[in-house]
């Protein structure tokens, strides 16, 4: 039997593990009141960000909603700066002015997390409009939850993207709940939310969002197609949010059962990849121990960096309200 590329899979696993451990640590820091405001964890959904972004070039654009830590880290942002932003520190990606829901890292072409549901989807069409206008062969990837699909702004954006054949890939992370409302109570065509995009003539496919290799493989195909100028694409990635909607919401809440959560946890994207690596890529326990150690150090360092960083000077309050000439 042919074996899979061990280094490649270790790379993917490493990124997913980074997001997982980073967010577990964020939750701890939230409990310690080091992080305030809203904190929406991506735990359970890591395979989508990592698989999708692995298929991009560094100069492609990515943009996300408010559950954005995973996308930002997968894009390669410095975990120290991300954690410092969550802590509201001057050394954060956005100098403490954005916070968890509004991470931006222009150096990684991560154009931000946005917290009005559906509101960033038109922005993604604008990024794609620009690359097409400038005749660059770049794609834009736009992440959002299934809760954004019925929003008017999503539909306006789908229509514009299809009308003008914009090089944008819409990735719907269908984690089955918009806050506490299950998709079947929010989206008329809940069994196939991609119909929302198909109704505008946008090609769409569903993928197992717990399988990072499936996500990446689909994305490679889709990115090539979109980059070649064949217009937008919609991916519905089936996933599940293991934690609450935010830290204000207990992990299963009143709207879903503990059993349901446990059932989905059996298909943890990290576990799935790990099993593949053990059985098909000559990985062993030592490899995972080594990765755990490395990532543990990265996350510990991020917390230390964030904790020791200064808060922004109140004198910076008015900085960057406007671009000054």
């Amino acid at each position: 039997m042919t074996h899979m590329d061990k280094a490649d899979l270790l790379g993917l696993y490493r990124q997913m593990l980074l997001i997982r451990r980073f967010e577990e640590k964020s939750a701890e820091m939230y409990a310690l009141a080091k992080i305030a405001g809203f904190l929406h964890l991506y735990i359970g959904e890591e395979a989508i960000a990592v698989g999708a972004i692995a298929a991009l070039r560094p100069d492609d654009y990515a943009i996300s909603a408010y559950r954005d830590h995973g996308h930002c880290l997968a894009r390669g942002s410095d975990p120290n700066k991300v954690m410092a932003e969550l802590f509201g520190k001057a050394t954060g990606l956005c100098q403490g002015k954005g916070g968890s829901m509004h991470l931006v890292d222009l150096s990684k072409r991560f154009m931000g997390g946005y917290a009005i549901v559906g509101g960033h989807i038109p922005l993604a069409t604008g990024l794609a409009f620009t690359t097409k206008y400038q005749k660059q062969d770049l794609v834009t990837v736009c992440f959002f939850g299934e809760g954004a699909v019925p929003s008017g702004q999503a539909h306006e954006a789908f229509n514009l993207a299809a009308l003008w054949k914009l090089p944008v890939i819409f990735i719907c992370e269908n984690n089955r709940y918009g806050m506490g409302t299950p998709v079947q109570r929010a989206v008329a065509l809940y069994e196939n939310v991609a119909e929302a995009a198909r109704s505008y003539g946008i090609a769409a496919e569903r993928v197992d969002g717990m399988d990072v290799l499936a996500v990446r493989s689909l994305m490679h195909r889709v990115v090539d197609q979109v980059r070649a100028g064949h217009g937008p694409f919609f991916i519905e990635a089936m996933t599940y949010r293991f934690m609450g909607h935010s830290m204000a919401d207990p992990s299963h809440g009143h709207y879903r059962s503990k059993d349901e959560v446990e059932e989905h946890r059996k298909r943890d994207p990290l576990t799935l990849l790990r099993e593949t690596m053990l059985s098909q890529a000559r990985c062993d326990e030592a490899d995972f121990k080594q990765l755990e150690r490395e990532i543990g150090e990265v996350v510990t360092a991020a917390v230390k960096f964030a904790d020791e960083s200064p808060f922004p000077d109140p004198a910076s309050l008015y900085a960057d309200v406007m671009v000054e000439d």
């Binding site: 990606l93 002015k97 954005g98 222009l106 931000g112 309200v321 406007m322």
Partner: peptide, 8 residues
Amino acid sequence: RYMSGGQL
């Protein structure tokens, strides 16, 4: 502009 700490 503001939320991005002046990046965008």
